[in-house]
Design a protein around this nucleic acid. Structure first.
Lengths: 371, 371
DNA sequence: TTGTAGGCGTTATCAT
DNA sequence: ATGATAACGCCTACAA
């Protein structure tokens, strides 16, 4: 009789049952009894089928399915000391780039019999620490983090728990935590150099660096600054607008930038979301992209290619990062030797939101001088 | 000595350790010995502090923190039969609406000491079943699903496991599974009626109904069809374009729709992503929105309000759905009496992607007749 | 108020 | 090849 059929079932007592399962779970012993074998044999059928006589194995198997027995993972974990469980803490799932990475991570883990605990920190290091504590108490066998900005406490906690860890979306190991991801700083440096080659000299940057823990965007901003300094065009503070990760802030950031520096010809954003906001605002205030203003993003979200004009951006291999993190941890748990960190390639995707400045004081360096 | 410092530690044996934790975990017995009390007392300090003499309690507490003891959740779960763990299976995290719901779900669960297992089905019922199986083996105390299209097998599995379930983003219980969400059909019916009142008579629909399990979009499509039938303007098959959930398909769908029915004045999409794709395509082929063509979406994603023109859509309370699902399961686990289903309000958000048709054969019914 | 002891379900060791 | 048994760490009757 389906439990879910009637709100009030009147079989046993009407009092609430605050804990435990209702139907006593079928266990190995039940299967063993039905099959007239010992519990040990059932266990062997489950874990080492090859050492059980085929006919017996089949018989046991039949009873297993008959009773639809499933093993109790708690008991298993208690015995083996391993939970076959991985935890991930992302800043937020609202950013498609993290959602994509988590999805890939889960898919790969699932293939290997692992299950994924998820938590989010809202870019708050204290919350991240709490969530980690909870995950470690849960007995996770490995942990995936994002970025390299983590407190000493967090590292101590991980170390003490002896849990393999990897951090993602960045490429440099920090505090002994290996990383898998891209070189954010280099990517924006290249992007900036591309714009310099196009002839731009008046730049602006919109960076989501308000969260202390966002070292990805910080590195991206540094890449921009370094490229411009190297070109003798260092960014002044008013040319850098700090924002969070929302689209609306991309809009207001562009407005502010153009108020302070109306003659800006190129805006580099550390996130597609910000760039898309900036493009929306540019359209609204009648600034032509890319004729009057070039805009670049970072992440290459689905929408980037569909914008009008399509957004020039940096493609981040989020799915590959997720898969790589899964592989790393699975190997680490198995005790395999591991690379310290994995540097993944990004891709500069040149679309139509960028072009040469309308009137370049310092024309692009080409063979033929401009007519 | 940090484990992570050197790849090769030479303290014990150089062979790999395929299983188990390295450092033997500190357990209740260790604390008990240090504190000169029985293991039972330590356990009581942990679980029922009020029944332990304060001074003794404090002493034990000190040793607990000193040894930084954490309880073994596997053993705990084995004893109590409860894991304090909830599972969720979404079609994909790539859709912001699901990511948002999962995030809210996790936040609420975390407040109550629960941890969230996440899995994704890719809109595939077989995969959903597999993931569910794995979650149930993990001993989850509750499960969150999306939508009402689930196979008999899945329902049987849940019932047999005796695990509380709730399905989300829909409002009607199916097969005994309670739901929390909105009335999708009613929402698009209202949206369609709104367009009818504006004077539209030539409609098109773009619906992501290729996945068999997507009953949300199916209901939304039915809402459109019903409203139009009621108005004596039933949709012909060629006026309905079926798509998946990608932005690119929104583009191609609009192209196809306008090829077959160039005189269409209103397009209703079952997803913002599709609507945004349709708007992008409209702009590209020079169709003015809303002057020539009205477009509506569904979900109210962040970008919807930022489009040019801002997108008329239906706002789905994803965060509220996530929180509500968490509350429902927490109560269900505690044995509290529960409502069968929860109907949440949606909100029609009228923005500027909709307007009256340019030349309405059948003018809007107003007091003053059109000039 | 605190201690003793048994068992939760599984699996590995040892014996047959 | 299969069976008996002990132990994983914790919790809770029950005893003191």
């Amino acid at each position: 009789m389906p439990l879910t059929e009637r709100p009030d079932r009147m079989d046993k007592k009407p009092t609430i049952e605050p804990k435990g399962r209702q139907q006593p779970r079928v266990k190995i012993e039940d299967v063993a009894r039905k099959a007239n074998v010992s519990p040990a044999t059932v266990s062997r059928v489950l874990n080492h089928p090859e050492i059980v006589r085929p006919e017996l194995r089949d018989k046991v198997m039949r009873h297993i399915t008959d009773l639809s027995y499933t093993r109790d993972s708690a008991a298993r974990a208690l015995k083996s000391g391993r939970m076959r469980t991985i935890g991930v803490i992302v800043p937020t799932l609202a950013l498609g780039i993290f959602a994509e990475g988590v999805e890939a991570l889960q898919n790969r883990l699932s293939e290997s019999g692992y299950t994924l605990f998820i938590a989010n920190s809202q870019y708050d290091q204290r919350r991240e620490l709490q969530e980690l504590q909870s995950l470690i108490e849960r007995g996770i066998d490995g942990i995936v983090l994002v970025g390299g900005s983590h407190g000493r406490e967090l590292r101590a906690l991980i170390e003490q728990a002896g849990v393999p860890v990897i951090t993602t979306y960045v490429s440099k190991a920090v505090g002994g935590i290996p990383a898998i991801g891209i070189d954010n700083e280099r990517a924006t440096r290249e992007m900036t150099e591309y714009l310099l080659r196009l002839g731009h000299v008046r730049f602006g940057a919109i960076a989501n660096v308000v969260a202390a823990s966002n070292d990805r965007s910080r590195a991206r901003l540094e890449g921009i600054q370094r490229a411009l300094s190297d070109a003798g065009l260092p960014l002044r503070p008013t040319q850098i607008i700090k924002a969070d990760y929302s689209l609306a802030q991309g809009r207001s950031a562009l407005r502010q930038l153009l108020t302070d520096h109306p003659d800006t010809t190129a805006v580099i954003c550390t996130t597609d979301t910000l760039a898309i906001g900036a493009m929306a605002e540019a359209r609204k205030i009648g600034v032509a992209v890319p004729a009057t203003l070039s805009i670049t993003g970072f992440d290459d979200v689905e929408l980037a290619a569909q914008m009008d004009p399509p957004l020039t951006t940096v493609s981040v291999p989020a799915a590959e990062i997720g898969r790589g993190a899964a592989d790393y941890l699975i190997n680490a748990i198995a005790g395999s030797p591991l690379p310290r960190s994995v540097l993944l390639p990004y891709r500069l995707v040149m679309r139509s939101s960028t072009g040469p400045p309308r009137s370049s004081e310092r024309p692009p360096r080409r063979r033929r001088s401009p007519g």
